[in-house]
Design a binder for these strands. Structure first.
Length: 455
RNA sequence: GAGGUCGUAGCUCAGCUGGUAGAGCAGCGGAUUGUGGUUCCGCAGGCCGCGGGUUCAAGCCCCGUCGUCCUCCCCA
């Protein structure tokens, strides 16, 4: 039976040239992360479900769960559940799935830190690059498997880290030549607004969703929705509440906020960060930035490209208590995650992928004689003795010359070595520059010398 | 989770109001017996995503399913 070659939904294969681009981006990120003293770690692709559950809020349903292996279906409770008329996924799921694919790299980090606390020294700065999985419906810039490039600092409260992260972002986008802005806010400010206006938890939740999408909806539906959220109690106060809220949200500076009654404590860390940011052009104070992930408690930021419609290409924030869920108290964390696929998309759009063809020189040995061994040892000889960075391929079989040249052409070789029966007899070899079409005949023994000197 | 779009040769796509498939590119062979980005000629390549239904007849219509791309929600 023939099986149709196709990927499952939402995942992609990568062609060599796509992989080359990714590596271009990843090399830059790794270099910058390392330069700022972050250490590389790795965690498994899947985690215990209890590690993952309860940390992502609404999006929890996007977790990929892994069916248990073995005889779990014979378990009595599962049998009862399966036979019962009442089908309740909430009851069955934990019986048949106890593992899940990681949803991000932050929660696994919290687990990792709690688990290995004795082997780590704090503050712990780490970077991690890896795939994460979300059972989302795919669309532009959104996949079920994608790569996050994370930096996090665990075990330090100071806002120096926010500033450091901003420096890293700045370095990176300059390095790759991308125009983007970091939107920044602090959840403490939103909480303070809530307190000031005496909003209850459900109102806060609804409003946070609303302000997050303010840019996308009309002013009219914004104020309609806002009225609806605020006006579920009958008193006249609601109207002033509405006006107060609008007034506060229109603030463009921290001073503005303080004047409107937001306590200093809520704003001072953001103030400090803004004052010390690397590049004022880069940063935008954005009161409407919320971010959905439940675990953030302080600074939040999002990196958005200018003129490219792809959403954010990175995001992060401060989470004050993530490790306490794993029994490690009073461990503050802050991190940021770059989304590899979306960065790739941006570079693609802007056509700024002129990654200098590496300084490797590509040589192909054409296959014109029966004795393959001689070609293999020719390659070995050159690789061992040449002082240049060479990539050397041997055409796999003896065949027509023009075919071999076509292969060389398509694979962008720089030089071809022509060594056939006549050269073999005379102890010569031809080296042809495939860009200039120029060809030279050398003594076989002089080949390495020639390569070192002339190419 | 809601809505839309598309699925035909390796790739990009045509295929009329239903009458059992076509182009370009790529591949292979030749013109050209050891010199590549051009040209010309030829060859091969298809469960028309999969399953069911309607019909004398389905690539085309209907239902389901898998996948693609996109919008909303949310997010990297």
């Amino acid at each position: 039976m023939k099986i149709k070659p196709a990927n499952p939904k939402g995942v992609k294969d990568l062609l060599p040239r796509e992989m080359a681009r990714r590596n271009y981006i990843l090399d830059k990120l790794r270099e910058i992360f390392s330069k700022y003293a972050y250490q590389n770690i790795q965690t498994p692709a899947f985690e215990r479900l209890d590690t993952l559950m309860g940390k992502y809020g609404e999006d929890e349903k996007l977790l990929f769960k892994i069916l248990n292996s073995g005889e779990y279906l014979h378990d009595e409770t599962v049998q009862t559940l399966l036979k019962s008329e009442i089908y309740d996924a909430k009851e069955i799921t934990p019986k048949i799935a106890t593992k899940g694919l990681r949803y991000d790299l932050t929660v696994p980090l919290a687990r990792y830190v709690a688990q290995h606390q004795n082997d780590l020294s704090f503050p712990f700065k780490r970077f991690q690059i890896g795939a994460v999985w979300r059972a989302d419906r795919p669309q532009k810039g959104r996949f079920q498997e994608f790569t996050q490039c994370d930096i996090d600092i665990v075990g330090s409260k100071t806002n120096l880290h926010e500033i450091e992260i901003l420096y890293i972002i700045n370095d990176f986008i300059q390095e790759i030549g991308l125009k983007a802005k970091v939107h920044i806010n602090d959840r403490k400010i939103f909480d303070a607004i809530g307190q000031l206006l005496k909003l209850d938890d459900s109102q806060k939740k609804q409003i946070s969703i609303l302000i997050d999408k303010k840019e996308k909806i009309s002013a009219e539906s914004y104020s309609n929705e806002l009225t609806e959220i605020l006006a579920n109690e009958k008193d006249f106060e609601d109207n002033t509440k509405f006006n107060n809220f609008i007034d506060i949200m229109n603030s463009t500076t921290i001073d503005d906020l303080i004047q409107k009654g937001i306590p200093k404590e809520a704003t001072e860390s953001l103030q400090f960060i803004l004052e010390n940011a690397p590049n004022p052009e880069l940063i935008q104070f954005d009161l409407h930035l919320v971010r959905g992930l439940d675990y953030y408690t302080g600074t939040v930021f999002e990196l958005k490209p200018i003129d490219i419609n792809i959403g954010s290409i990175g995001g992060g924030g401060r989470y004050d208590d993530l490790t306490s869920l794993f029994g490690l108290e009073r461990m503050n964390g802050i991190g940021f995650s770059f989304g590899l696929e979306r960065i790739e998309f941006c570079l693609d759009q802007k056509e700024i992928f002129e990654f200098k063809s590496s300084n490797m020189i590509r040589i192909i040995i054409l296959h014109l004689i029966e004795n393959t061994k001689e070609l293999i040892s020719l390659r070995k000889n050159i690789l061992e003795n040449a002082s240049k960075n060479l990539i050397i391929d041997i055409y796999p079989e003896k065949s027509k010359l023009d075919k071999q040249f076509q292969y060389a052409d398509k694979n962008k070789f720089d030089y071809a070595l022509i060594y056939g029966d006549s050269e073999q007899k005379q102890g010569k070899i031809n080296i042809k520059n495939l860009k200039t079409f120029q060809q030279e005949t050398l003594n076989l023994d002089d080949l390495t010398k020639f390569i070192n000197k002339n190419i």
